[in-house]
């Protein structure tokens, strides 16, 4: 057993857990954050993606104790209060989800992808960058559309902010 302290979605949390507990299970079972899902055993499907210290990682491939001391954002912490994050809004607007199971991981991966490509994204890049996220419902068509749209919205927003700053 080890003590685990994290900052999750802006809140300090701590708990004691077996060393073998995966981060995803700590989030789901100890913190009740069940938006993060487990869809495979081989670290491939990406349903479990969360942000750890600002980077999108697979929470099924990290021990909770390994993450101790880190800052974590999950799907539950992405929206700004009642206002959806632009990626969340784009998934809804463009029907980028059906059963919703892969969706939290998709959205967390997509926000990271957009952040890594401030210059914008094209379809081929989005598809390549989704290699670690599997969806069985949508055929990816509308997921790709949603990410491209969100990328546009966010780069506009960023430019707007930059202008204001200037």
């Amino acid at each position: 057993m080890s003590d685990v302290s994290l900052t999750v979605n802006g809140k300090r949390v701590s708990g004691s857990t077996e060393d073998r507990t995966l981060l995803v299970h700590f989030l789901r079972e100890h913190l009740g954050l069940t938006g993060t899902h487990v869809g495979c055993d081989t670290s491939q499907c990406g349903a479990c993606v969360v942000h750890v210290d600002g980077r999108a990682v697979k929470s099924c491939t990290m021990l909770a104790v390994q993450a101790s001391g880190s800052t974590i954002v999950t799907i539950e912490g992405l929206a700004d209060g009642a206002e959806l994050h632009p990626v969340q809004a784009a998934f809804k607007e463009h029907h980028g989800l059906q059963c919703g199971f892969c969706t939290p991981g998709m959205i967390m991966a997509a926000t990271d992808m957009i952040a890594r490509h401030p210059q914008g994204l094209d379809e081929a890049t989005v598809r390549a960058e989704l290699d670690g996220n599997i969806c069985r419902c949508t055929g990816y068509h509308n997921i790709v559309k949603a990410i491209l749209a969100a990328s546009k919205t966010m780069s506009k927003g960023a430019k707007g902010k930059a202008k204001q700053a200037a």
Binding site: T34, T36, H37, I75, Q88, G100, F101, I107
Partner: peptide, 17 residues
């Protein structure tokens, strides 16, 4: 646009697990 999306995109879906 789908009514059910709100819960899925905010992590509020309720699956058996």
């Amino acid at each position: 646009a789908r009514k059910e999306d709100k819960r899925f995109i905010t992590g509020g879906g309720r699956y058996v697990d």
